[in-house]
């Protein structure tokens, strides 16, 4: 009996002593933290993707709490709903962020852009881009080795094995921008998702002169400026033989699409046109 008692008492004393020490140390090294940081962090998606520009959700939360206004702070993953919740916790007005989505500006599929050599190095776009212009005549276009796919934490971008081009899964893309950073060719851009996901963009980044660009890829932008003339809203600029549609100015009128001689302007998620013959490029893109 006494053995049992000794054991219980000894262990009890050791336990109580340890607890006391732990408590005292805990008190001494206690870090004072704004409790709202934790609250904000709780409403964040916890993806730690870095899409907000901060290393992770915790540091974004702390930045939100410390900032005077939420202007310029946006969680692209959680979107408006999350930012509203954050604003409520902090008692501020949430800035209105426009929903964006990743857009791949290259339509150089295997048919449009024939392969002229075989790449045989490590399967990594950055390594291939450091080596040479790529396995097609276009040294600006997609290399198809999937750095974007590897960088995506949301399973939202995949290389289509038939076209060897990445395709964005619309309802999974959070516009965190990881693929934009990962792409060594700067092909991927975050653009406004648009009403009903309707978007128009120039699906080409080739800055060569028209003839050279066209020779390497059927659907290359040749910088002819026909789209620029067709645009009623001055949304299109031509720089380095390449057209670019400013998504702030574009009103989705679709006038530029049919005038493009190389079909390099793509329209997504629009209803089929009634007046003219069906456009071919719809068939080639199915994002």
């Amino acid at each position: 009996m006494s053995v049992l008692l000794t054991a219980v008492v000894t262990l009890g004393v050791i336990g109580a002593g340890s607890a006391a020490i732990l408590y005292l140390i805990g008190q001494k090294f206690k870090v004072e933290e704004d409790p709202r940081i934790q609250e904000v962090q709780d409403v964040l998606p916890a993806a730690n993707c870095g899409g907000c520009g901060f290393p992770g959700c915790a540091s974004f939360a702390s930045a939100c709490v410390k900032a005077d206004t939420l202007e310029g702070l946006n969680c692209p993953v959680g979107g408006q709903a999350t930012m509203d919740k954050v604003a409520r916790i902090l008692g501020q007005a949430a800035p209105v962020a426009v929903k964006k989505i990743a857009v791949v500006r290259c339509n150089g599929t295997c048919e449009h852009r024939p392969r002229i050599n075989l790449y045989d190095g490590a399967s990594n776009c950055t390594i291939a881009a450091a080596l040479y212009g790529g396995d097609t005549g276009c040294s600006f276009g997609c290399l198809g080795l999937g750095d974007c796919e590897a960088s995506c934490t949301f399973d939202a971008i995949h290389i289509n094995p038939e076209t060897m081009l990445p395709e964005v899964v619309e309802d999974k893309c959070t516009a965190c921008g990881a693929c934009v950073k990962a792409c060594p060719k700067d092909i991927i851009e975050l653009r406004k998702q648009g009403p009903k996901s309707r978007r128009i963009y120039v699906s080409c980044v080739n800055e060569e002169k028209g003839g050279v660009a066209r020779k390497s890829c059927e659907v290359a932008c040749i910088g002819c400026s026909k789209c620029q003339q067709a645009c009623p809203f001055e949304a299109i600029t031509i720089e380095n033989n390449l057209a670019y549609i400013n998504d702030d100015k574009c009103r989705l009128c679709r006038k530029c699409v049919p005038v493009c001689p190389t079909n390099s302007i793509l329209e997504l998620n629009f209803p089929p046109r009634k007046d003219k013959s069906p456009k071919e490029e719809k068939a080639t893109v199915d994002a």
Binding site: R115, I116, N117, L118, Y119, D120, G121, A122, I127, L131, Y132, D135
Partner: peptide, 8 residues
């Protein structure tokens, strides 16, 4: 006819 192989 064969395409050239390019590798690092």
């Amino acid at each position: 006819e064969n395409k050239l192989v390019v590798s690092p």
